[in-house]
Nucleic acid binder design. Structure first.
Lengths: 137, 137
DNA sequence: ACGCCAATCACCCGAACGGGTGATTTGAGG
DNA sequence: CCTCAAATCACCCGTTCGGGTGATTGGCGT
């Protein structure tokens, strides 16, 4: 995205300089200079708006892909992540176990380990922590 | 915010035109015109970036103000909302009761009513539903 | 006046959870 | 080979939660 914007900027700047050079003789006459400068200003304003919106805007529109850094730092395993998403979706251990096709007792182990890793005492706190860390949306 | 940007734009445009007019004589000489045009272009590019970022960017930076429509439609009372925020923050009934300065038994009533209104069977599900509805961030 | 609703609170009891014990299996790495 | 960690699972037992019962009070609308 930044590469594309840089290309656009280079093209526009290059075009501007080229026109400047070719029209240098005309620029010295009448009032055409003021209109020309305004045209440049408007063009660059539009480019700036485009760049600003794309560079700084709409982070929410990107697909959520978790926070692999935090997951790695906390040592969250793939299974723990699966269980965490089940918890955050509002499901009980029993329901999570059913969807993972394991016994309910089995779910309790990654749950307990998630609590340790997230510093949580209960499910709701684990969700809250995971959201702060960007691990769940 | 838009008003401020418009003021900035008007000032910059006005300043540009004033300089244009005052320097019209100088513009007809040497290469100073190319440098001048580039200066204008850069200034408007910066303004554009600023406008773009603020107009289209960072929706997350706005203060979260809930979803009063959904709250009203579901009939969620101010107390219930307080309790919901406590739940979403990962707190136990006991902790929520302490912060609201009521008995733990008292918290259970709005909790139960939130579950009814959100169609939830447990706290985690209530959080999930409330987030879907935009009631909690 | 009455009815409704929210808020407060107590209590009963079952379910789910969560901390703890333990066991086994598997796979990766040294 | 050994060690370690993850995953699987069972069980014990205490805590929290949640559905239910009930009561009282206060505010608002009819």
């Amino acid at each position: 995205m930044w590469q594309r914007a840089v290309v656009y900027a280079a093209l526009l700047a290059g075009g501007t300089l080229a026109l400047q050079w070719l029209d240098y003789q005309r620029l010295a006459r009448a009032h055409s200079g003021a209109a020309y400068v305004l045209l440049i200003a408007v063009a660059f304003l539009a480019l700036g708006v485009f760049l600003g919106a794309n560079a700084f805007g709409s982070p929410g529109r990107r697909a959520f892909d978790g926070n692999p850094k935090a997951e790695g730092a906390l040592g969250i395993s793939p299974r723990e992540l699966q269980v965490l998403h089940g918890i955050a979706a509002g499901r009980s251990n029993k329901e999570i176990a059913a969807s993972l096709e394991v016994a309910p007792n089995t779910v309790k182990t990654p749950v307990a380990r998630l609590f340790d890793k997230l510093g949580a005492k209960r499910r709701t706190q684990a969700i809250s922590r995971a959201r702060e860390l960007g691990i769940v949306p």
